[in-house]
C-alpha cells in the first residue's frame, strides 16, 4: 500500500516538475509547481511529518505560490523569447547535470542501501506537540532569529517595491 501511494505521488511530482521546467508561459510553470508541492505534502504525510505537510500546503502552496502568481500577473509576463545566448550553460549544463545526478544517486545507494522501509504511521514523532517542544526549547534562538529575518524581509520588500524608485 505504501509503495503504491509513494509511486503515484512520486510520479505526479516528477511530471509536474518536468512541466515547470519545460513550459514556456510562467503561469503554467507556477501551476505545475503547486502540483509538485501538493504531492510532496502527501509524501511528507507518508513519512510521518504531519505538521510539516500542513505547513507545506498552507505556507508554500498557499502563500508563496500565490505571491508568485500575483507577480507574474503584475508583470504581465508573456511567453518566453527566443533562444538566448549562454554558451556555457548550454554546452556544459547537460553533462554536468547528468554527472551530478549520477553522483548523488550513487552515493545515496552506496551509503544507504535500502534503508528502513517507509511505513505510514511508523514514525510518530512529527506531531505538532513534538515540533513545538523542539522549537521552543532546543531551537529557540534560531526561531527568534527567523522572526527577525521575516521582519527584515517584509521591510525590504516594501522598500524595494515602492513607486518612486
Amino acid at each position: 500500500m505504501d509503495v503504491i501511494l509513494f509511486l503515484i505521488f512520486a510520479i505526479i511530482a516528477v511530471v509536474c516538475a518536468v512541466n515547470v521546467v519545460v513550459q514556456t508561459h510562467p503561469i503554467s510553470s507556477a501551476i505545475s509547481l503547486i502540483g509538485v508541492m501538493g504531492s510532496l505534502a502527501v509524501l511528507y504525510l507518508l513519512l510521518g511529518a504531519e505538521f510539516l505537510a500542513m505547513a507545506q500546503i498552507i505556507v508554500y502552496a498557499g502563500a508563496v505560490m500565490v505571491l508568485f502568481i500575483f507577480v507574474i500577473m503584475l508583470l504581465n509576463a508573456g511567453t518566453e523569447a527566443k533562444r538566448g545566448r549562454s554558451l556555457t550553460a548550454q554546452l556544459l549544463g547537460l553533462p554536468l547535470l547528468i554527472a551530478f545526478l549520477a553522483l548523488a544517486s550513487y552515493f545515496s545507494q552506496r551509503f544507504y542501501p535500502g534503508g528502513a522501509a517507509v511505513h505510514f504511521g511508523a514514525f510518530k514523532g512529527g506531531t505538532a506537540q513534538n515540533i513545538g517542544m523542539a522549537l521552543f526549547t532546543q531551537y529557540l534562538l534560531p526561531f527568534e532569529v527567523t522572526s527577525a529575518l521575516i521582519l527584515i524581509a517584509i521591510v525590504g520588500a516594501v522598500v524595494l517595491a515602492r513607486k518612486e524608485l
Binding site: D2, V3, L47, Q109, Y112, G114, A117, V118
Partner: peptide, 8 residues
C-alpha cells in the same frame, strides 16, 4: 513493508 528509504 513500504518502499525503501533510498527511493525517497
Amino acid at each position: 513493508s513500504g518502499p525503501p528509504l533510498a527511493w525517497y
